[in-house]
Amino acid sequence: MRTMNRILLTVSALVKDNLRNRFVIFWIIVFPIIITLLFGLVFGGFSSYFHVTVAVEGNYGLAKYLNSTEIFQGVTNVSLKYAAEHDYIYVISNGSSFTIYTSKQNQEFVPVLESVIEQYYQKVNNTYDFTVLQISNYTYYNYLISGIIGIISLSNGILSTIGVSASYFRDRIIERLATSPLKSYEWVISLIIYVIIITLISTTAVIILGILFGFIPIIGIEFLGFLVIATLLFGGLGAIIYGLTPKDKIFLSEIVANVLVFPLMFLSNAFFPPNVYPPIVRIFVEYQPLSVIITIIRDLIVYGISPNPILVSIVFLFTIVFLYAGGRLLRLREIS
């Protein structure tokens, strides 16, 4: 009971102390909103900046031909359900008749796709019949908001853990806490709970903004649970960075955090899919930690499907490792 009381009091103090700071408010609320608005307004015509994937049923040659264009990427052996969930255009070829399934996002490319199909069959003197059906209201904002939520778990997890720890060290608050009955593990748990709270605040602000853009997320226990896990993973990483930094050079932990966070943020699938990046970095963009977490979040709140269990297991495993290592390194009584 005493342990719980000390943790709750510490969490309350952390929340009150930091949420009164305008700089903190900027990073957990204003910054996510600004970056969402910036990318949403500038890149609202999302599909114009990358190859639109077209899943073809019934004609492998047509799919291969689409790959030779500068607009479309043709694939086969994909179900209509999978295509709808991942914003592919889906084409069923039946002789001279074609049924095209598309999202609202990709409707502007249907006339171009019809012309490309006619070019593919140009040696055959025939009339082609196209039926176009809209299968989802997917837009760039669905993609963007889900990516921003992943970024929130990254930035709050690493930057807030290091920021609070470093500022409390510089202001000698850690020294006062070290003379109190508060134990090191209670301090670590309190800090983790604080980071989770501000992550939920940031996520709520971005989701409200997304709703104004017409994005209605699928919010469930699975999403909230995974958001907490993602935040714990990056929070543990932040604790490791801070714990390994010599305390006479504590500013280095904040430099390392920024050097790590911003490349991960912009070299990820948060704003654009991996296939828009140069081939030399495409694999990294697709499988780096933030991209994996965003992929799982996107599956949960955009597509409403169960994420890849292997990816979830990997994230969960690394979360345990980082939390354990970070908890051992983030000691309360380490003042020399």
Results as ranks from 00 to 15, higher is better:
M1R: 13
M4W: 03
L9D: 05
S12T: 12
A13G: 13
K16R: 14
N18S: 08
T36L: 01
F39K: 05
G40L: 01
G45M: 06
F46N: 03
Y49T: 12
V52L: 06
N59C: 10
K64R: 14
L66V: 02
E70P: 10
V75N: 02
N77P: 01
K81H: 05
Y82M: 07
E85Y: 05
V91I: 08
I92D: 14
S93C: 15
N94L: 13
I100S: 06
Y101G: 15
Y101E: 11
T102L: 10
K104I: 00
N106Y: 00
P111F: 09
E114R: 00
I117V: 04
Q119E: 10
V124C: 06
V132T: 15
I135M: 08
I135F: 03
N137L: 12
Y138E: 06
I145P: 03
I148E: 04
I149P: 15
I151H: 00
L159K: 02
L159W: 00
S167Q: 07
D171C: 01
I174V: 06
I174S: 07
S180Y: 12
E186R: 01
Y194C: 12
I198K: 04
I201D: 04
I216R: 06
F226C: 10
T231F: 03
L237H: 11
G238F: 12
I241H: 07
P246H: 15
I255R: 04
V256N: 00
N258C: 07
V261R: 05
P263G: 02
L264M: 15
F266R: 08
S291R: 00
I294K: 14
V302A: 09
S306R: 11
S306M: 06
N308H: 01
P309I: 03
I310N: 00
L311A: 09
V321Y: 01
Y324N: 09
G326A: 05
E334Q: 14
S336F: 09
